[in-house]
Design a binder for these strands. Structure first.
Lengths: 338, 338
DNA sequence: TTGTAAGCGTTATCAT
DNA sequence: ATGATAACGCTTACAA
């Protein structure tokens, strides 16, 4: 059961293929009567344009790719979801590429994507410097690029990030207002902009209340749960243990919580907790977790919108947007013990 | 900066385009000397075949799609991950389509995918009957299909599922062996094979020990957390409340846990718990959750392998495979109270 | 073994 | 406003 071609439609309608094409693309005006005739044949034959032929001819596809470091991280999943919604509405499909935070794999994907003639790529870069040079080449090929949750060094592309700084600053302020003075931070690696900004927000939050930053209260991890577990143990084993912890990501939270159980500490009577990222299980935790929520879907949706605008030829100067975060107070913050 | 074409390679190497094509595809033997010459020109010019042209010519793409009901569900994410690994190795890219359990959206995707000339589709059907008829049409177009975590009524395709029956039966047995006699079940909708099988496994697990099934201890939900929360409250509010609960999915667990807190029950001293699906936060929960783990990545990987085999023209009779599950004992099961 | 040439189904450039 | 027709870059009979 071969699908009908444009040629067949043209024959049935008694017009040329050019006319059919014009009717379908609405590029040039076509006489009302012919328009009618073509459309009814299209209906009748159930004609659908062959995407493959169109792609070849126009040297482009209706595909947007997104390159993420870890597709099993709910944050990125939700971002993808937001992007997909935006793309689907505009008739685009999205290709998800998972790099496992592996530079080589990212590189390989970026290469392949060039060959695939995707219309655009949303990049959550693994390395803000190295990835940047790859992305530059892609831009030269005329592929639109939007950076998400990361910053690309000296590459003129639109960017979308949460207000990591403000969200953290605000949360730390809240902790101080509840009476906490010794607040620990399980941070992410400084090579990622969000990790840097959360750390800066933490420091600012303390400064806002005239509190000094104690380096002993800060542990830098790779954002994975196992390192977070170790770091948390170290932090809580110290003599003057913090009375509250700010956990820089969902994965960090998983590791830290394991450590906290292990030490037999009670939340929030022994230790208060705020997590950056609202996880689906946060309200089901015992006690329910107080978190800083990002607008994850909207992050993806905005990236999609910016992308589509570029694809359609916008030439505004590239711009970085910041989406607000929200402190959701649940039950993991209490008064400092004693 | 236009990319070089095959024609240019041919000219530089002093051969015909056909020869270049043959060298690149390894279809027909090519003289050693020419082969050399072509390859070195390919290197020199950094030639990469134009996928779009190849697609049009062969009427196919190196793309595998996967249609999932809920991309934010970690189970499906992990499946996608497994599929992606398998596909990437074979030079395929994967298209993720999220239907939100919406029949119309699924239908729309299935339609689009037909136009996209994907090589194959992994389907996690929203409706085992309705989706089936759509899938049949797709098969007729020559697209390979593999069903995952669902069953498709009377459609001759390969299937991949976990041993839902055995996994649940085994878990319930374990509960009985710990002394539990009143075991509740928060089940999923009977329209999904896995939900049916988990329920059957639950009943069999009881029967194995000569225990009768008490319908009052079974609540059927739509697998979403909010319904699970309500159902759990009802179950635990009854006079003769169960001493243990089997929760049929991760989302169900989230809802049930909320209800359990709300009632102020302690796990496991007041109530024991087993969850179907190992969630990343299960070990971090307080107490760590005992779960039945599925081989999620392998589920996706196997689907990918079966798919690739079909794409390459295998004509074995379609077959359904079952992957084993594993009971992971942590801390949410104890002796029944009193 | 190698080359010639005919498409694949569109879009876009010409005339008319 | 419409119709021929030439690409787009590749694969694959068919001929040599």
């Amino acid at each position: 059961m071969k699908s009908p071609t444009m040629k067949e439609v043209a024959q049935h309608a008694g017009v040329s293929v050019a006319t059919v094409s014009r009717v379908l693309n609405g590029s040039t005006a076509v006489d009302g009567e012919l328009h009618q005739r073509v459309m009814s044949v299209v209906e009748e034959l159930r004609y659908r344009p062959n995407r493959l032929a169109r792609n070849l001819r126009t040297n482009s596809t209706k595909t947007i790719a997104i390159v993420v470091p870890d597709i099993e991280n709910p944050f990125f999943v939700s971002v993808v979801r937001g992007l997909e919604d935006a793309a689907f509405r505009a008739g685009y499909t999205v290709l998800v590429c998972n790099t496992d935070d592996d530079l080589e794999r990212e590189s390989s994907y970026l290469q392949v994507l060039g060959d695939e003639f995707v219309a655009g790529i949303v990049v959550c870069a693994t390395d803000e410097r190295y990835s940047a040079s790859q992305v530059r080449k892609i831009l030269e090929k005329g592929v639109a690029v939007v950076s998400l949750d990361r910053r690309l060094e000296d590459v003129p592309v639109d960017g979308v990030l949460s207000d990591n700084f403000g969200g953290t600053r605000n949360a730390v302020s809240y902790l101080v207002e509840q009476g906490h003075r010794r607040i620990g931070l399980i941070a992410g690696p400084a090579k990622y902009a969000p990790a840097r900004e959360r750390r800066a927000g933490y420091e600012q939050g303390l400064a806002d209340h005239g509190l000094a930053v104690d380096p002993d209260l800060i542990k830098v991890t790779n954002f994975k749960s196992s390192e977070a577990e170790t770091a948390t143990k170290e932090l809580l084993d110290s003599v003057r243990r913090p009375t509250a912890l700010f956990l820089s990501s969902g994965n960090v939270a998983i590791g830290s919580l394991r450590a906290i159980h292990h030490l037999g500490l009670d939340i929030p009577s022994d230790l208060s907790l705020i997590v950056f990222d609202d996880l689906d299980w946060a309200p089901a935790y015992n006690p329910p977790l107080t978190v800083v929520a990002q607008n994850t879907r909207q992050l993806g949706g905005l990236a999609g919108d910016l992308m589509l605008r570029r694809i359609r030829g916008s030439s505004e100067p590239p711009h970085e947007r910041h989406l607000p975060t929200q402190l959701i107070v649940r039950g993991s913050v209490g008064l400092p013990p004693q």
